[in-house]
Computed example of a mutant assay.
Amino acid sequence: MNNFIFENGTKTYFGKGCVKEYLSCLTKHYGPNVMFAYGGGSIQKNGIYDEVMESLNRAGKNIIRFPGIMANPTYEKVLEGAKLARENKVDLIIGVGGGSVMDCCKAVSMAAVYSGDIWADFFARPGIMDFEPLPVGVVVTVAGTGSEMNGGAVITNEELKIKTGRDYPKCNPKFALLDPVYTYSVPKKQMVSGGFDILSHIMEIYFSEPDEDNVSDDMAEALMKNVIRNLRAAIRNPQDYSARSNLMWDAAMAENRIIKLGKRMDFECHNMEHQLGAYTNCNHGEGLAALHPVYYRHIYKDGLAKFSRFATHVWGISNEGKTMKETALAGVEALAGFIREIGLPTSLREMGIDKADLKKIADSCGISAGSYRQLTHQEIFEIFKECY
């Protein structure tokens, strides 16, 4: 394995009833002013809003609401939250929702205390955070991004048409509350998209060097099989607690930095999807589903041994009578078949994306340094056309 330094500063509370049991006492360690951040109205319909409010009121907090965080949080929304936090002398931010809410809260925690432009200094390029952001706690309602256990935030600058993410350990939530029951009311489309995002995160770590025997790859294979099995189970029965709890922990494990240890990591699909999102505001999981099989058909020969192992260890495909190339390609086709099975789009056309925009989107994409073969912008454009 390659050298690494590991850090994770998030204390995680997992299981049924954890919000009611722990949130009130956790907030007592902070000052009186709490920003309660969330997205649309779903948490007000399913009872989560009331449960969080009750906990914060029980702790005697002055609650400043910050609603309306969108699916692809914008830099403008971050600045709105930062202004609100400064004006109200916020001591703690509580983000209740999925990855978009959590990411926005982390960016707000930086912008609220930083005197400069956090986009220019921390998102346009990696920065050195020599200050303490506002503390953040999260209540997770959607299994997907794994943002609950890292310092990562993906933000869209609408003016520049750039969607990018950075991971700063100081932005790790101080605590994360994961109640699988909170995910029951998530619509099927959102649940499946989130589930595929989990799988995508794991695959993009797995399909990178080193390829020698290592702990991270072994763990990644177990997690991928778990996601596939439990996503199928959750589709059959949305209130299958075992399936929902496994998916929730799969999401956290995919992005809490553990399986990234010693790996180079290939996030090219995420780079491509982020720019599709920056231009079209498309659904993140759907975009990844449309891209992954085509991207892997382009690069599998450059990582033949790992793709062959993916086919046999994750999908259970026999390599008997097959060349390594045939086995590897069979694994990619099994992934494509799974995407069709769970009902995600298999083309950009299905997502309503305008073909005329694909060239400029391709030219704006970042190039992953950790991939088996680095793409050119022209090849990204070819992938987009094949995905269409």
Rank of each mutant, 00 (worst) to 15 (best):
M1S: 15
M1T: 14
F4L: 13
I5L: 15
E7T: 11
G9M: 13
G9N: 15
Y13I: 09
Y13F: 15
G15Y: 06
V19E: 04
T27L: 04
F36I: 04
A37Y: 02
Y38T: 05
G39L: 02
S42I: 08
I43C: 07
I48H: 01
E51I: 14
M53N: 06
A59S: 13
N62V: 05
I64K: 02
M70C: 14
M70K: 13
A71K: 10
N72Y: 02
K77I: 11
A82R: 02
A82Y: 06
K83A: 15
L84S: 11
L84Y: 05
R86Q: 14
E87W: 05
V90Q: 00
I94L: 11
G97H: 00
G98E: 05
V101C: 05
A111E: 10
V113F: 02
V113A: 04
V113I: 09
S115L: 03
F122D: 03
I128N: 14
P133Q: 08
V136I: 10
V138H: 00
V139W: 01
S147D: 06
E148R: 03
M149W: 03
G152N: 04
G152S: 07
G152A: 09
K161G: 11
K163H: 07
T164M: 11
R166H: 12
P173Q: 09
A176P: 03
A176R: 01
L177F: 11
P180A: 11
Y184P: 01
S185Q: 14
K188F: 08
K189W: 10
Q190A: 13
Q190N: 12
S193W: 05
G194L: 03
D197L: 03
I202W: 04
M203I: 14
F207T: 06
S208G: 04
E209L: 15
P210H: 06
D213I: 15
D217F: 09
V227Y: 01
R229Q: 13
A233L: 10
A234F: 06
N237R: 12
N237A: 13
Q239I: 15
S242Y: 12
L247I: 11
M248Q: 07
A252Y: 02
A252E: 01
M253S: 09
N256V: 01
I259Q: 03
G262V: 12
D266F: 01
H270M: 02
H270Y: 02
N271P: 01
N271R: 13
E273V: 10
Q275F: 08
A278K: 01
Y279E: 06
T280Y: 11
Y295A: 05
D302A: 15
L304F: 08
S308I: 08
T312M: 13
H313R: 11
H313I: 07
W315A: 10
N319Y: 11
T323C: 05
T327E: 12
A328G: 13
A334Q: 07
A334L: 09
G337W: 08
L344F: 05
S347D: 08
L348G: 00
R349F: 10
E350V: 00
M351Y: 09
G352Y: 09
D354N: 14
A356P: 02
K360S: 15
I361Y: 04
I367F: 09
Q374I: 11
L375G: 00
L375Q: 03
L375S: 09
C387Y: 03
